[in-house]
């Protein structure tokens, strides 16, 4: 924790900021990328959102008060950026969020950066049908293996509610996958 405090101080100090930020990008780019990619699904969109996320982190680092872990704060920004990106994209295409998810899954089949098997594609299609919160919770728990306490800080939701969301998500996914 002391080490994190020192790192945050380096990020907020104009003299050391750029060097510390370089370290931050190097350390978190992959974790944040995969978190974003699982939400927006295609690589180009994930690239846009990742860059915007780091820019936002850079612009707002001075306002970070250390009320949560730095990692949770960055994950929260990445999550919000991804969701806003999808909503904005749906609005521009004049379609609903649900239709946007369906179109993303359809595009996945032709995506050069997707080499999943049939079952992996089916799983993504099933995840896309989940309500937004359950989708996030499932991805963060199942693929990213985050602890409920960490997810609670990122999503600002109680641990109990997260466990319940994950439970419901798994049940629905099993149902979707066995039905089709």
């Amino acid at each position: 924790m002391v080490q994190e405090d020192l790192f945050i101080a380096a990020l907020q100090n104009k003299e050391t900021q750029n060097r510390a930020f370089q370290q931050l990008v190097s350390q978190y780019k992959e974790r944040l990328y995969w978190h974003i990619r699982r939400i927006v699904l295609d690589h180009d969109d994930a690239d846009d959102v990742l860059q915007n996320t780091f820019l936002k982190i850079y612009r707002n680092i001075d306002s970070f008060k250390g009320e949560s872990a730095l990692f949770s704060w960055m994950y929260r920004i990445a999550t919000n950026e991804s969701l806003s990106f999808l909503k904005q994209k749906a609005r521009k295409a004049n379609i609903t969020d649900k239709e946007m998810q369906e179109s993303k899954i359809q595009n996945l089949q032709a995506d050069v950066y997707f080499e999943g098997s049939d079952i992996q594609l089916k799983l993504q299609a099933a995840i896309a049908k989940l309500p937004e919160k359950q989708r996030l919770v499932f991805n963060m728990k199942y693929f990213e293996e985050l602890k409920y306490e960490e997810m609670s800080q990122i999503l600002d939701t109680s641990v109990g509610a997260l466990k319940s969301s994950y439970h419901h998500a798994v049940k629905k996914l099993e149902e979707y996958l066995t039905k089709d």
């Binding site: 995969w34 990619r37 699904l41 690589h43 992996q120 799983l123 693929f143």
Partner: peptide, 14 residues
Amino acid sequence: FPKETGFKIPDTYF
């Protein structure tokens, strides 16, 4: 469920 998603990235992306 499968643990791998099947998502790929360009070679030197990171």
